[in-house]
Nucleic acid binder design. Structure first.
Length: 646
RNA sequence: GCCGUUGUAGCUCAGGGGUAGAGCACUUCCUUGGUAAGGAAGAGGUCGUGAGUUCAAUUCUCAUCAACGGCUCCA
């Protein structure tokens, strides 16, 4: 009996019923048969050896398909488990999935410990098994048989997995001496894995719950060719050079000091310049946007955070209180309560709304020690904060205006790789993580979603990521080493207005409570500058560069003219310096390039004679002679426009 | 907070039971050199901190602090 197999290009071919995807691949070409990893059969990823008994749309998957890669890595995880079981007999396994870059396997080694040397050994064993071309054999098995198998093995983790599986849908996969409970699919045999590296060992809580036992997790990555592994490792090396922690040190942006404390960065002079430029941008933008600036204290009495409702939710994330005159004071972890008090300082009418308060607010958060990460996750942060108090009718326009502000900023910085995340509440956590206002949650979530849809902003929705007082839009970015962070945030708050009894008088002399928008488009200085360091690879655009121009005289005879040019630049507010060291020009250029100074002005006898400067552009080299006034005009225009990019 | 790794000069790193070494940076001198490293000399560290073992600890052991890789968390 024949079945119809259709291909992605629309072609339909007939095959015998029971044909498998490998046979189909072979029928097309031998080259394809060598490369094919798995098959998508009616949208489901299947083993190549699994018989197809019905008409089907199939796609043959190779390493170049995302699901081909994940199948490859999933099989690699099994290969890892096989090697681990050989070296550590009696090991119990939890799960071993593919991830974005590679795979891992979680296991319980009992009292035994695994070391870096073990990883090298395991890599060797894995490659040996790979060379044996061990087939991945799929077997459908009854739940009872599966339970018996893992009971005999004493693997309570697999038994736990089995608990949640339905009889009749359970499969085992075996390669070599290793059998695993697994839904598959897998690559045909281990021989496709030609290169691999076990990258690190880590502890991971069972089922991701910190109350559970911590299992040992081994991370790895594998490839069908050695040169791909080499390229991957090279890419990691390159990424390390862009790491904001490394660049921040090299460029004198920030430092950490044991005596100051973990997560408390000291901004060095170069970092302080960037902060000032960012604040200048923020203040200009907010002034145009109708914001009023305020300045409020970094601490407050306990009562303020009881009123705001923060304490029950976030006490653990705040520095412990200090007691003075019998009253507890907290370092603030957020600025909103202070701003609410500013709003409340004078009576408000509907005519005052929307009322927008902005502050570069300093906050302190007691982040868990293991969470600290360079500038991206710190305990002292400076937030580009503002709170907008508005009526329900004004809300959509205000929220939209904030979103537009994000996008304007992102354009200035050339930020393109981000994801807008609509962060929603989780109804099962009402009253615990989220204020217990089910109706208001749904209403405000709809308000926010509608704004996004109306402005045609691409976004994803994620549950259980909201603030305790309302839904929000977070802008997610990734550090160079792949960690995800919220760069900017735009939040709705239907709760604190009530908690603080904030009111305004309506036209009919009744009173209402405003809705509040919390927004921080530039996030915090710490995270934003950390991100920018990586984004620009340390090569800041001129307006942000701590040093904008380095003047490089060729010899002492040119020094006097060089000093004149230097003074002129300083007079015009350009951050310029003069390299009058007794060094050769090549050395001076190199040092300025390494310091990533955007512009170098080289001044020799020729220039002195002709009253000009020779411009050299960072990363590009000689840009020819300039009249000093023309250069001044050029750089001032670039700074005024906040021109981005090289 | 949990699991694991690391901690030597300003930076990057080597070393190792008998109180330390390189390159770069720094200082001084020589060199006045045209688009990514001129030469020489010098200075700089109680080897993260505390305790233990030892005749002797920077090296071994333990504790502690911090950083790093994950997990959990992330207003």
């Amino acid at each position: 009996m024949k079945i119809n197999i259709s291909f992605p290009d629309g072609a339909v071919k007939q095959f015998e019923k029971g044909v498998n995807a490998m046979e189909i691949a072979t029928s097309i070409s031998e080259g394809l048969a060598r490369k094919v990893i798995a098959a998508s059969v009616n949208g489901e990823t299947w083993d190549l050896s699994r018989p197809i008994n019905m008409d089907a749309a199939i796609q043959l998957l190779t390493w170049n398909d995302a699901s081909g890669k994940s199948t490859f890595w999933h099989s690699s995880a099994h290969l890892l488990a096989e090697a681990v079981e050989e070296v550590f007999p009696g090991v119990k396994f939890w799960v071993g999935p593919p991830i974005e870059n590679g795979f891992y396997y979680d296991m319980d080694l009992g009292d035994r410990k695994i070391t870096e040397e073990d990883l090298v050994k395991l890599e060797g064993i894995m490659l040996e098994h790979a060379k044996k071309n061990e087939e991945f054999i799929r077997k459908e098995i009854s739940k009872q048989e599966a339970i018996t198998y893992f009971s005999n093995k004493g693997d309570e983790y697999k038994l736990d997995l089995l608990n949640n599986l339905e009889d009749g849908h359970i499969t085992f996969y075996t390669q070599g001496n290793f059998t695993d409970l697994c839904r598959g699919p897998h690559i045909p045999h281990t021989g496709l894995i030609k290169a691999l590296k076990l990258t690190n060992i880590a502890g991971a809580y069972w089922k991701g719950d910190e109350k559970n036992k911590q299992l040992t997790r081994i991370y790895g990555i594998s490839f069908p060719q050695q040169k791909e592994l080499d390229a991957y490792l090279l890419m990691l090396e390159e990424a390390k050079k862009r790491d904001h922690r490394k660049l921040g040190k090299e460029l004198g942006i920030f430092t950490m000091d044991d005596d100051v404390g973990p997560g408390l960065p000291l901004w060095l002079p170069n970092g302080a310049i960037i902060i000032e430029e960012l604040e200048r941008l923020g203040k200009e933008t907010e002034l145009k946007g109708g914001y009023k600036r305020v300045v409020t204290p970094h601490i407050a009495k306990e009562n303020l955070y009881l009123t705001s409702g923060h304490l029950p939710y976030y006490a653990d994330s705040m520095y412990p209180p200090m007691e003075m005159d019998g009253t507890k004071y907290y370092l603030r972890a957020m600025n909103c309560p202070h701003h609410h008090k500013v709003f409340d300082a004078e009576p408000k009418s509907y005519k005052d709304l929307p009322y927008r308060l902005a502050e570069y607010g300093t906050c302190y958060r007691y982040e868990q020690s293991g969470e600290l990460f360079g500038l991206m996750r710190v305990r002292c942060l400076h937030m580009n904060d503002a709170h907008i108090y508005c009526t329900k009718e004004q809300f959509a326009d205000e929220f939209k205006a904030v979103n537009e502000m994000y996008l304007r900023y992102f354009k200035i910085f050339g930020i393109e790789k981000y994801v807008m995340r609509l962060s929603l509440h989780d109804p099962s956590k009402l009253g615990q993580k989220y204020v217990n206002e089910p109706q208001l949650w749904l209403e405000t979530e709809k308000l926010v979603r509608d704004v996004l849809i109306e402005t045609k902003t691409p976004f994803i929705e994620v549950q259980d990521e909201a603030a305790f007082y309302g839904p929000k839009i977070d802008v997610q970015i990734w550090s160079i080493i792949g960690k995800e962070f919220t760069l900017a945030t735009n939040q709705v708050d239907f709760s604190q207005g009530k908690s603080f009894n904030l009111q305004y008088t309506n036209a009919d002399n009744t009173t209402s409570t405003p809705l509040i928008i919390h927004r921080a488009p530039l996030g915090t200085h710490e995270r934003f500058i950390g991100f920018l360091l990586e984004h620009y690879a340390g090569k800041f655009p001129v307006w942000l560069s701590p040093k904008q121009v380095e003047i490089l005289p060729i010899n002492d005879q040119c020094l006097s003219f060089a000093k004149t040019v230097h003074a002129e630049l300083l007079e015009n507010g350009i951050r310029a310096s003069l390299d009058d060291r007794n060094e050769k020009i090549g050395k001076k250029i190199r040092d300025a390039e390494v310091a990533k100074t955007p512009y170098m002005l080289i001044i020799g006898e020729k220039e002195v004679k002709e009253n000009r400067v020779s411009l050299r552009v960072r990363g590009k080299g000689d840009a020819g002679p300039f009249n000093p006034n023309d250069f001044m005009k050029k750089i001032k225009a670039e700074i005024a426009d906040r021109k981005s990019g090289e």
